[in-house]
């Protein structure tokens, strides 16, 4: 049996290696997840320069804080996204201060930064990533159920799959995704 065919086992091994101080594990994590981290930061901050600064900070923080990684919680992706939320919030705070200081100089009323943002982008992108990573047929079942909003009966007919199997994939899949979001929350609220 090739255990490395299972992306979850591979991710857990990476997490253990990182926690043990293996620099190559950090490099591998960067190869896998820097596009996820960068895209989250880019969505949240809008400029490539700020987003790349966040990527740098996240992976440096991941190395320094490797002791806080919990390999048993599955993919380090959620852990990295949690750190990313932290850093993005820091950049936003700095921007707000700069904005407020400018406003104060101009003797204007202090207001919230003008650009509205969807605070759930980090979670949404993590779920997209997890769905891409997840093997089929579960990923397809979840996409049809949640993104295309199709009924379980419809999915069962289309995929020629027993209804019970569809329901089982939806249940397992949703619980798994829920656990990823819990991990983001745990890290981001530290």
């Amino acid at each position: 049996m090739h255990v490395h065919d299972d992306p979850d086992i591979e991710s857990a091994e990476l997490a253990v290696r990182l926690a043990g101080g293996d620099r190559e594990a950090l490099a591998e994590m960067y190869r896998r997840w820097s596009p996820l981290v960068h895209t989250v930061a880019l969505r949240a901050l809008g400029t490539r320069e700020d987003a790349e600064d966040v990527v740098q900070q996240v992976f440096v923080a991941a190395w320094r804080g490797r002791g806080t990684l919990r390999p048993e919680r599955g993919s380090p992706a959620a852990w990295l996204v949690g750190i990313t939320k932290h850093r993005v919030a820091d950049v936003r705070t700095q921007r707000y201060r700069a904005h407020r200081n400018l406003q104060a100089l101009a003797s204007e009323v202090v207001t919230e930064p003008a650009t509205p943002h969807d605070s759930d982008w980090a979670e949404r992108l993590l779920l997209v990533h997890e769905l891409e990573r997840m093997g089929d047929p579960r990923a397809t079942v979840l996409r049809m159920a949640f993104i295309e909003d199709r009924t379980h009966d419809d999915i069962a007919r289309t995929l020629e799959m027993p209804l019970g199997t569809v329901k089982s994939h939806v249940r397992r899949g949703l619980l798994e995704l829920r656990d990823r979001l819990k991990e983001v929350e745990r890290v981001a609220s530290d």
Binding site: E52, V55, E123
Partner: peptide, 29 residues
């Protein structure tokens, strides 16, 4: 929590692709 998960998963259709950071960022790290 499960409803929120389903809601967030359903809202990802406007997703427009991954953007890798510049290669130099790894050297900075």
């Amino acid at each position: 929590q499960l409803r929120r998960t389903a809601r967030l998963a359903s809202g990802s259709e406007s997703y427009a692709g991954w953007h890798a950071p510049d290669d130099a960022v790894w050297a900075r790290v």
